[in-house]
Design a protein around this nucleic acid. Structure first.
Lengths: 193, 193
DNA sequence: ATAATTTTGAAACGTTCATTTCAAATAAAA
DNA sequence: TTTTATTTGAAATGAACGTTTCAAAATTAT
């Protein structure tokens, strides 16, 4: 009986994410989203409820994308330390290919919204928890196979890497030199060896 | 002949900075600034030209504040590595005492505005250049007095610390546990020893 | 075909935005 | 005290904001 959605939800979210990523939440207007997606205003509200809800949906899609990337990477890597290195290299590659220097959507979100919106605050806490857990598991393995030293606990190293990744993604907004960024990754990881 | 400004410019900038710091640039309205400063709309425009110009002025005041803190700290510290440690500890202290978890004004600015406003982009580049130069000088001294190892060049370690500081300040937005943050500083600095 | 249900388009909602205007108040210099 | 330059207050500017409304179009099942 019902007429069904004609647009491709995945595409629309991709386009909306691109806008939020480039301009941030507050600088993105509903008109920007209408223009970027080609959808009608009311279709957006019909399908995504509100600007804030659409934003959170984009965050989750973005989060999922990286979770899939990381999972794949873990399977491909022969050792935990190489998996970590590959992860940094993905950030490096993305940064170098992004001419608009947008940085990371989730880090931008944290900077702009963490203390302003409780739903987003919750999302960020959950994202952090998951990332730390994943890193802890990796480090535990690395410390067992001796590719990572035992100077610090897995919890300490996980937080270190979590923090380093945020630093790297912030740094690579204004530093676009490949050698410098590769050096930064090396320096960061030398701490674990 | 002229009637002179009655308000205290320093106070007004402090109040405006607080608003920008808490809400970010785009979420801060002129009304917010009027409310926070107690100034009249037209007085703000008269004295600060525009919202964007006021924002940049606040950024510069904030930057100066830290430059003064760091200078003082360099004089007080007996060694470069301790100066660096003290700097991280200042960030730690600020983070723990900031119940609103605002993060760093300049990092928030980079995340929100670096790719949106060329005047701000320029400010950020200059800020980065100054910070890196200061860190390089410190590291050079540390490598001379052997408190910092020579595994990497002073340029590489300066970028590492610059990046680590950004990571730390991002991390401390959602991690408020003193022990964890102290551990993070330790882990970060162990790399230099 | 018809009925049922949803999406769509266009316009309008009331609010808030950054900025401007301008006369009144103010204060230093003459 | 008058002149001169500036700051102030309050109101207004027009544009943009996020969201709602609702009739028309569209699509599927009967």
């Amino acid at each position: 009986m019902p007429k069904t959605e004609v647009f491709n939800r995945e595409d629309v979210l991709k386009q909306a994410t691109e806008v939020f990523h480039t301009k941030g939440y507050n600088a993105t207007s509903m008109q920007d989203l209408v223009d970027a997606t080609g959808l009608n205003r009311s279709s957006i509200y019909n399908s995504f409820k509100s600007k804030q809800n659409l934003y959170v949906t984009c965050l989750k899609v973005y989060e999922n994308k990286y979770q899939r990337i990381i999972s794949k990477l873990l399977l491909e890597s022969n050792s935990p330390i190489n998996a970590i290195k590959s992860l940094f290299n993905i950030y490096l590659k993305e940064s170098l290919s992004d001419n608009t220097n947008k940085g990371c959507l989730i880090i931008n979100c944290k900077s702009e919204m963490a203390n302003q919106d409780i739903a987003i605050h919750k999302f960020l806490l959950n994202n952090q928890k998951g990332t730390l857990q994943l890193l802890e598991d990796l480090i535990e393995k690395g410390q067992k196979d001796k590719s990572i030293n035992k100077n610090k606990s897995k919890e300490a190293y996980a937080l270190y890497l979590f923090s380093s990744m945020q630093g790297f993604r912030m740094t690579s907004i204004l530093v676009n030199d490949k050698n410098q960024l590769q050096g930064l990754i090396q320096t960061t990881l030398q701490n674990l060896k």
